[in-house]
Amino acid sequence: MPEAPPRHVFVYGTLRRGGRNDINRLRPAPEYVGMGEVRGVLFHLDWYPGLALGGEEAVTVVGEVYRIAPELEAVLDEIEQVVPGADSEYFKREIDIGVGGRSVACLVYEINPQHVRDRQPIGHGDWIVFHKA
């Protein structure tokens, strides 16, 4: 069976460099590609954020893009508590992210809308700035 090719992931919260779950501390090691951005809304859930893609209140959400091996994708799925069905905390999406003037197909862990129903957005798109304030 052929080996699965590496994929890209957009991380916008605790998985960012210096965050509580810094992706650079995970194995197999990811390869940094660059800073990226997407339109969406960030919500403060507790010690971590949730991203809802698009929407009327959308702002530019910044994050880091990494090339990852399939083994690391499985680790990220566990961290983000991705499970089959409608009760998953996050849903894994693949969308195009702007990185350095080009478009890169990336996995994005989008929060389940049921988990942010009564939450207020943080008002901008940078979790690191919000969390350090």
Score class of each variant (00 low, 15 high):
residue 130 F to H: 12
residue 20 R to M: 07
residue 114 Q to K: 14
residue 73 E to Q: 14
residue 131 H to R: 15
residue 4 A to P: 15
residue 122 I to R: 11
residue 46 D to F: 10
residue 66 Y to G: 07
residue 125 G to A: 11
residue 103 S to P: 02
residue 121 P to L: 03
residue 93 R to T: 01
residue 109 Y to L: 01
residue 14 T to N: 13
residue 66 Y to A: 03
residue 61 V to P: 00
residue 52 A to Y: 06
residue 114 Q to W: 13
residue 30 P to Q: 01
residue 98 G to T: 15
residue 83 V to K: 14
residue 92 K to I: 00
residue 109 Y to F: 11
residue 132 K to W: 08
residue 80 E to C: 05
residue 77 D to M: 07
residue 32 Y to L: 12
residue 32 Y to Q: 03
residue 27 R to C: 00
residue 80 E to I: 00
residue 79 I to N: 01
residue 14 T to L: 11
residue 112 N to Y: 03
residue 84 P to I: 00
residue 61 V to S: 08
residue 104 V to R: 03
residue 90 Y to M: 03
residue 94 E to A: 13
residue 40 G to S: 11
residue 66 Y to C: 02
residue 101 G to V: 08
residue 99 V to K: 11
residue 28 P to R: 04
residue 23 I to T: 00
residue 26 L to E: 01
residue 82 V to W: 09
residue 106 C to V: 00
residue 25 R to I: 00
residue 67 R to E: 11
residue 116 V to N: 04
residue 34 G to A: 03
residue 52 A to M: 12
residue 2 P to E: 15
residue 58 A to E: 05
residue 19 G to V: 03
residue 69 A to L: 13
residue 24 N to S: 00
residue 64 E to F: 05
residue 78 E to G: 04
residue 15 L to H: 06
residue 68 I to T: 03
residue 13 G to K: 11
residue 20 R to T: 14
residue 128 I to W: 14
residue 109 Y to A: 02
residue 50 G to A: 10
residue 53 L to Y: 09
residue 104 V to N: 06
residue 97 I to C: 11
residue 15 L to N: 07
residue 104 V to Y: 04
residue 64 E to S: 02
residue 128 I to C: 06
residue 110 E to N: 07
residue 18 G to H: 02
residue 88 S to M: 02
residue 127 W to P: 01
residue 117 R to W: 10
residue 125 G to C: 05
residue 109 Y to W: 04
residue 6 P to V: 09
residue 37 E to D: 07
residue 61 V to W: 08
residue 33 V to C: 12
residue 100 G to C: 10
residue 38 V to T: 11
residue 30 P to R: 03
residue 9 V to H: 06
residue 2 P to H: 08
residue 105 A to K: 15
residue 108 V to I: 10
residue 121 P to C: 06
residue 59 V to S: 04
residue 44 H to E: 12
residue 14 T to S: 14
residue 124 H to V: 01
residue 7 R to D: 12
residue 97 I to D: 10
residue 61 V to L: 00
residue 92 K to Y: 09
residue 105 A to R: 15
residue 40 G to K: 05
residue 104 V to P: 10
residue 50 G to V: 05
residue 122 I to K: 11
residue 81 Q to W: 07
residue 118 D to K: 14
residue 28 P to E: 06
residue 71 E to A: 13
residue 123 G to W: 09
residue 63 G to S: 04
residue 88 S to E: 01
residue 19 G to D: 05
residue 121 P to M: 02
residue 74 A to W: 06
residue 49 P to R: 09
residue 125 G to K: 09
residue 29 A to H: 10
residue 126 D to L: 11
residue 41 V to K: 03
residue 104 V to D: 05
residue 98 G to N: 15
residue 95 I to N: 06
residue 19 G to L: 09
residue 118 D to H: 15
residue 119 R to F: 09
residue 93 R to K: 15
residue 71 E to K: 08
residue 132 K to F: 08
residue 123 G to P: 06
residue 40 G to D: 04
residue 92 K to L: 14
residue 130 F to I: 02
residue 11 V to E: 02
residue 116 V to H: 01
residue 84 P to E: 03
residue 116 V to E: 00
residue 1 M to F: 10
residue 28 P to G: 10
residue 11 V to A: 08
residue 81 Q to M: 09
residue 70 P to A: 05
residue 42 L to E: 06
